[in-house]
Design a binder for these strands. Structure first.
Lengths: 350, 350
DNA sequence: TTGAAAGCGCTAACAG
DNA sequence: CTGTTAGCGCTTTCAA
């Protein structure tokens, strides 16, 4: 690989002139010198060594991304959008880590990012406890946390970008109520997270507004060790079995995410219950793949592209100017009606 | 951040002793020095700067991964397995790039990997032309290509790891034939790739062995610009419309991958055709999520974990010893029977 | 067994 | 406008 010295020698100039060309400092160069250097660069097919540059400047065009698992299509989609935003906005590349929501995995990734000189990281995790994120900030990382909207006014060192989860729960319940459902349930894996709590609150709030005619309950399921890459779908499938045997079964169900909904619908079908004739289901995420279930899944979609853009922008800009105050950005979800919701008692087979 | 000098000062030794501790050269150190240095490292919470180390050694514990799009669950799953293998085998981190099968994107990624000093890359691309991969090898990258099994004996500079796609097509057709299907079709997006061709050949071969009673055709669909993140599912959905209006419709369909199959089943259902009663469908990939379709999708599963392990091992080992000859590893797929295949004419509703 | 010192390739004063 | 030079933090001869 050619170095800056080779280019300087070939162009008959000093290395600093070459460096100035590389860094667009045209004001410090004669047009002639500039041209000669450019020619030399071209002829040698020279590419500056970013490692050397980084050792000097302390910067590197890389962004860390921590997600629970790219095997979950939601996070695969997020990774795609974030990569696109990082390239488009800053020509940054992505260092990816699957954490399985494990604190140790996250900590290991932070260590490595730091030692690679990466200064910005986006964390999609959802654990309730955020102290290890603050610790990472103290060590010099600019961290953006996804889906963990903090209380307004809370003083944090990390940026937060999140859909309005309360609103998501609210409009999901509203959709079912508008279709005449009176026995609602919210399905969620056990384990408290900020986003789950907010969704549940929104769901319950809307149900409460409907008065005593509408009942609402929260049903927790436990993710088993034996579940595979699609553990949430596995859980939904398992929970369908429980639902099927309930005496006073809910007619309208909201799930905390689309994978759970897909597993649930599959399990309900297996148990001989029809969606939406016997039970209506509303998912959350807006996974494109959920449009291809049978029936296609009605879902509360999150504005992924906008959120990805915002996350990348905050992560990089704050790594460049750590003085910037942390912000708390909230994005509005929208209901995407498809075919998993109907009036209770309706029967298409009629 | 503490540097090696801080540690040396605190321990009262020279930087080279610290370096020797860092690199486990215990033979060149007294036990006492070693202990003092370790203590200093601990007290300062010192982490060696990998950038500086890399500038000196030329190595960095990073692996590049190029996939068409992590929004496709198949590639999300591959990314997950590869990351796990890279961590487990070598403690390497992953630099991820979504290429959308675009040659320019791939080239840009190669440039960046090289300038970051990354020496190994795994490419999941499937374009027929492989010259740009060979070019990357010339520039110093160790590249492993997935799903592009080359002709035996072909002399290549890149490693190939691939499922036996011919066999995949073969057992998919066999499965349908065993269920009594006589009019088969293979669905594929237009655009030739090595893996698609092999699958088609295997499919046709098995059909031919069944004699003149069995007919087999290949149906190509064109991915439209308007399709979204799940473009393959969109395509399957669109192709279902075409199938529904065919005069002499196939009863057993094999799709080149699971996303296409999911879209297809959704489209068939939309068109009033039942799976598997009216049409049986066999997918390929073995996506865990395909177990939650309705009906659940019978599919030819590829041994992802084993392939990921092999790819990582080859990529890293060859980057360390470029003398190693390129290999061509082939892995066997297995049929995962679920509920999208039945005897033609069978009717569960009876 | 330990330390001094050269340099990996680049940037950015600073001097000319 | 151009060139010289001192590092960035580490590894690794080579001497002591």
């Amino acid at each position: 690989m050619a170095t800056i010295h080779d280019v300087a020698a070939l162009a008959g100039v000093s290395v600093s002139s070459v460096s100035n060309v590389l860094n667009q400092r045209t004001d410090k160069l004669s047009a002639d010198t500039f041209a000669r250097v450019e020619a030399a660069i071209l002829k040698l097919n020279y590419r500056p060594n970013r490692v050397a540059r980084q050792l000097k400047t302390g910067h590197t065009p890389m962004l860390g991304l921590l997600v629970p698992s790219t095997a979950n299509p939601m996070y695969g989609q997020i990774a795609l959008k974030i990569e696109a935003a990082a390239q488009a906005q800053f020509s940054y590349r992505l260092l990816l880590g699957n954490t399985h929501r494990d604190k140790l995995q996250e900590a290991g990734m932070f260590d490595d990012l730091l030692s690679f000189g990466v200064r910005s990281v986006i964390v999609v995790s959802s654990r309730d406890d955020e102290r290890h994120l603050e610790a990472a900030v103290q060590r010099g990382l600019s961290v953006v946390s996804y889906d963990r909207q903090t209380t307004i006014g809370a003083n944090s060192l990390v940026d937060h970008v999140s859909p309005d989860n309360f609103q998501a729960g609210y409009i999901a319940a509203a959709h079912l109520i508008e279709h005449g459902h009176q026995r609602l349930a919210f399905l969620v894996p056990s384990g408290k997270t900020v986003s789950r709590s907010a969704k549940i609150e929104g769901f319950l709030e809307r149900a409460a507004q409907a008065g005593s005619a509408v009942s609402a309950e929260v049903i927790e399921g436990i993710v088993a060790e034996t579940f595979g890459d699609s553990e949430l779908a596995d859980l939904g499938f398992a929970m369908a079995g429980k639902l099927a045997t309930m005496k006073s079964r809910p007619t309208g169900i909201v799930t905390v995410n689309d994978m759970l909904a897909m597993g649930l619908m599959s399990g309900l079908h297996q148990a001989g219950l029809r969606v939406p004739e016997d039970i209506s289901v509303v998912g959350m995420d807006g996974l494109s793949i959920a449009a291809f279930c049978n029936p296609s899944l009605t879902s509360v979609a999150m504005p992924l592209t906008e959120m990805a853009d915002a996350m990348v922008q905050r992560a990089v800009e704050r790594s460049r100017d750590p003085q910037l105050p942390a912000v708390n950005l909230v994005f509005q979800p929208t209901l995407v009606p498809r075919h998993s919701v109907a009036r209770p008692g309706a029967d298409k087979r009629a």
